[in-house]
Design a protein around this nucleic acid. Sequence first.
RNA 1: GGCUGAAUGGCAGAGUGGUGAUGCAGCGGCUUGCAAAGCCGUCAACCCCAGUUCGAUUCUGGGUUCAGCCUCCA
Length: 463
Amino acid sequence: MLEIYNTLTNQKEAFKPLEENKIRMYVCGMTVYDYCHLGHARVMVAFDVIYRYFLDQGFEVSYARNITDIDDKIIQRAIENEEDFNHLTQRFIEAMHEDENSLGVLRPSLEPRATDNIPAIIKMIETLIEKGYAYQGSTGNVYYDVSKFEGYGKLSGRNLDDLRQGAGDRIRIDGAKDDPLDFVLWKPAKAGEPSWDSPWKRGRPGWHIECSAMSTELFGATFDIHGGGKDLQFPHHENEIAQSEACTGQHFANYWMHNGFIRIDDEKMSKSLGNFFTIREVLKHYRGEEIRYFLLTSQYRSPLNYSKEQLDRANKGLSRLYVALRGLPIVAVLKNTDFSARFHDAMQDDFNTPEALAVLFDLSRATNTVRQKEGKLNAAPYGALLKQLGSLLGVLQMDPDEWLQNDEHHQGLSRETIETLIQARLTARANKDWAQADKLRDELTTQGISLEDKGTETLWRRD
RNA sequence: GGCUGAAUGGCAGAGUGGUGAUGCAGCGGCUUGCAAAGCCGUCAACCCCAGUUCGAUUCUGGGUUCAGCCUCCA
């Protein structure tokens, strides 16, 4: 039975979709005014694994991950760059898709964009005004009146009094608002800013409303899963609930899933702290699959510290798994094993990927043992299972030799030179000229090439 | 101040009321011309103080420390 930790109730719950066999999942995606960093990579990969697992379990999955392509920061960045805002957002959407490809992330089934859904947004704001949940302030902004919504704070475990008290002087008292906690639904445009016609002033939507409008538009008033980074729990998701439930009068998402942060030196990685690494920066030194593996070494809700050492370990861990697969013929998968059972138990326990990876290592050991004792042919079904389970995590799908010989990041010897040196060494070995053979091997070792003698042939890999 | 969540071996990171995580690193062996890889074995942990229990790292209470949210953030 699949259990998911639900942030709404702060406990693991048995997962039951609204419609049998069908899952509707909405995840808050990127605001596209800059390159994605590792924090974004974590959301992408975490929900990608969840998506893959649901698909593997035979569900029909509608997975929507929105793109916020209009907001204050986008406008500001466009002005700084002297660039049309559509051009800016298009650039970073393309960059995002490149990053996703590098990480082996499947494209969500839907990628709704805020600017494509302005009519749905306006419609929802109108309904909120009609129902008395929203009002237009003196400056022309349309605000959501949090005091009208009874359940405000239920996702983040707060109440209005706590919030008002905790806010202190951090929240500016905007004269146009009835309550400092009210948030903006529609914002009038300044001259030259991107804007849309509306029943109010010409302007643009506030940040939270797009997700309410688009998820409701795509999935209806109630759907199965709503996800995103932990930092969106408040206020973004809290506000989404307020907007959607006030508008439709129905329960919004059933399961809320929030992934933990990436940290640098035990501190949250974030744009405001300036301590972030973009995905493409890290890709200069490590491969996408290494980054992906690194992200899977901790459960998605736990914090995860980024360091070079961790990425190096990811490389070693993956090498161990790929070594087990190396040279095995392609055959049918081993059936009904304890390994699959344990793997699925781990995944069904709120997507426990570290535990699932542990199973892959046990399985690789079994593969190696069988290979040593009974030969390649008998080991192959184990390898096939290893690769199949790996596919659920989005790893181990490359050709093992290609992975181990890693042509992506080296500045050393070419393949041709390596092969030539290996041939020369094989000749020396055949003549039992160990001094010459060792000299050639040392030469390769200093270039970061490890050799493995297997009978009459020699395998090599880059460290 | 309010609200969350954490504290596990040298490092990373799961999990459990009583024996195994797993990976990296270390140590011994098998294997190898010697290595590498692999296999076998091995070392080693559960923040502190009470309580519940035959037994607690795991449950309860208190404490300490850390991280996050309460302001844009994945």
